[in-house]
Amino acid sequence: MLRFVARRFFETIPVLVIIATVTFLMMRLAPGGPFDLEKQPSPEILARMKAHYGLDKPLWEQYLLQMKHLLAGDLGPSSKYPSRSVNEIIADAFPVSLELGCEAMAVALLLGLMAGMVAALRQNTFWDHAPMSLAMLGLCVPTFVMGPLLISAFALHLDWCNAAGWFFPRDRVLPALTLGAYYAAYIARLARGGLLEVLRQDFIRTAQAKGAGGARILFRHALRGGMLPVVSFLGPAIAGLLTGSFVVETIFGIPGLGRFFVTAAFNRDYCMIMGSVLFYAAFVIAMNLVVDIALVWLNPKLRFE
């Protein structure tokens, strides 16, 4: 397993270099720059600011310089927030996005797995149709509709929580529900499918014949196999929860990284764009690795190859 992890780690380096290079080229090809403002500063001032961020050098030199800094772990200064470094901004904002992501994932797993299990065990009854219809709804309603609807109901009419903000534990509930709903729906359908397939297999019938109880069969025998599709889905789901949190962060006024990720592009904040893209890339790669390890652990037919 160590060899597997080490190999994956070394494969990551060229991937990140390619991502950094493509990002560099794309952001430099986009028209406009960080200091284009409605009120244009004088040419002298503009030249000074460009010099401060090294933007006056030839492009290839800027590329090499940025790569050198990146290798040293220095993501550079933010041109939008002059007194802050990108490292600092990410260190500040990412824990918030991570917390939101984990809570949304908890919502997704809790709701999704329960609904999936109930539906699989009570196939073709009300307890199958009701959660699966809800799940279909969850898949169809986008977060920018779901968020304001939940706020309207729980914050503005029932007055149970704030309409936006990230201060009290109760501020977490609506954003986590909004962000987690889509994934809960997806997981419910995957879990139902996975479980139905496993429940029809011979070893389950054997267990039943041996007189094992329903709960024992479900949790001890069926769940492990039934969860495989869900676990494979977790890799992309985690990536989606983290990068997709931009909309939810905006709707609920949450100080996470998702907003920087998007606004950096609008601001042409070059170091911030590069920093957040690479950070997310590395994070998603790491999560996929964790999922791969989990899959091998769950499925005895797979090996670390």
Partner: peptide, 29 residues
Amino acid sequence: MTVRGASLVQIVLSLGLLLSCGCGHRQTL
């Protein structure tokens, strides 16, 4: 096969309770 799992209705209700706990008529900020 019978499994005593929490029904969806119960889950939704308990989440609602979690949200409303200690609330009632709040004072606004």
